[in-house]
């Protein structure tokens, strides 16, 4: 039963990633794209952990941790760029 649930969850998370991808492409503004990218990072962590459960191997944990760290740094860097690099005011 656990396998079936895992397969269903793969589909749900993949759907979530597709919706985020739509927002990443559609925009319409830069913050929307940053937010979509951030959501994609978190969704991919979920997908990796689910895959680790499916395979019964704890190997994927390190990759998930790295994505979490790098995703946060990337989001902060992009937001900071918008805050400082833009000459609107």
């Amino acid at each position: 039963m656990l396998e079936n649930v895992l397969e269903l969850s793969f589909v749900l998370v993949a759907l979530a990633m597709l919706l985020s991808l739509y927002r990443l492409i559609k925009g319409p503004d830069i913050p929307d794209r940053i937010l979509a990218l951030d959501t994609l990072y978190i969704n991919s962590i979920a997908l990796l952990i689910l895959f680790g459960l499916y395979q019964g191997s704890p190997l994927y944990f390190e990759a998930a941790l790295l994505i979490a760290v790098m995703g946060f740094v990337g989001t902060v860097a992009l937001s900071k760029y918008l805050l400082r690099g833009d000459i609107m005011e």
Partner: peptide
């Protein structure tokens, strides 16, 4: 060690949300 990722996410998610909102208000 999974707890570590959850903790990390729960600490960083509001921080990045705050920064994105700040950037959005700025532009």
């Amino acid at each position: 060690h999974e707890i570590l990722i959850s903790l990390f996410l729960f600490i960083t998610a509001p921080v990045s949300a705050h920064l994105m909102a700040k950037a959005a208000m700025h532009i």
